[in-house]
Design a protein around this nucleic acid. Sequence first.
DNA 1: ATCAATACGTTATAGCATAACACTGCTGCA
DNA 2: TGCAGCAGTGTTATGCTATAACGTATTGAT
Lengths: 137, 137
Amino acid sequence: MAHDHVMPTDLTRNQELVLGTLNHAPAPLSAYDILDLLRSEGLRAPLQVYRALDKLVERGLAHRLESLNAFVACADEHCHRKGLIAFAICEGCGKVDEFADAVIEERLGKWAGATGFKVERTTMEIRGKCAECLKAA
Amino acid sequence: MAHDHVMPTDLTRNQELVLGTLNHAPAPLSAYDILDLLRSEGLRAPLQVYRALDKLVERGLAHRLESLNAFVACADEHCHRKGLIAFAICEGCGKVDEFADAVIEERLGKWAGATGFKVERTTMEIRGKCAECLKAA
DNA sequence: ATCAATACGTTATAGCATAACACTGCTGCA
DNA sequence: TGCAGCAGTGTTATGCTATAACGTATTGAT
Ligand SMILES: [Zn+2]
Ligand SMILES: [Zn+2]
Ligand SMILES: [Zn+2]
Ligand SMILES: [Zn+2]
């Protein structure tokens, strides 16, 4: 099922435009990509996009991919409840798969406990090829 | 033991300068930070630093931290033999702890096997506070 | 001597992100 | 009613990160 995203009703216009753009994109978009796609809607400056993205990421409706300097819509309605999220990014088609793994998270917790490090945020990004792209090659 | 880094003998001058700078830094440096530290050695352009960094990262002598757009010297002489490396980055003092975890790697391999994804590279970066900074606070 | 591979140096440009300031519209309360 | 506070907006300017494109220099093998 494609585009089965839930769009909250309490978003501002800019936030809604940005989230809508991410929802319909087949691959991550940079803030400037988003801006270009929304010029026809009246957006003119990077800050308008970045401010919307900040809020969306804060609410867990979108995620930032550090290794791409780009953003994706969250693929899971209840993602924000979870802790660590891992992203598998296909270098072929750009598709991003989002998943949580309790074992990895627990393992991380163990390491933190042993070293006295207080974890605040974890980014885990896997680059490679998705099954579909491998088959096509 | 501080600064117990091994400096290979087959580096070019620029590579040696850049690695030396990273080795002596207490925290990750951006390419432009490095450039500023090396102007007195005659470096003038970002590309001189980026090209050296490319080689150093390729050889596993330095690592790029995606979530910081910055670089660190590798902390482990034989790090390049391992697979997945995780970085714990202290937001307080900037110190970076580098470690490998076989369980996490195996878990990732299981996920890849199940979904048909071919992993080529993984970045895992943990942000938080180190034990020392927590104690000081 | 010739050639290929690698590194180097330089200028210009592209791509990503935030600072600072002024203004709007709303909400909650004196 | 009036006002303070807050979140969102619009705009301009700026700063930070990274690469394109060009030519030269050095090395090492044939
Ligand atoms: Zn999510
Ligand atoms: Zn793919
Ligand atoms: Zn290392
Ligand atoms: Zn610290």
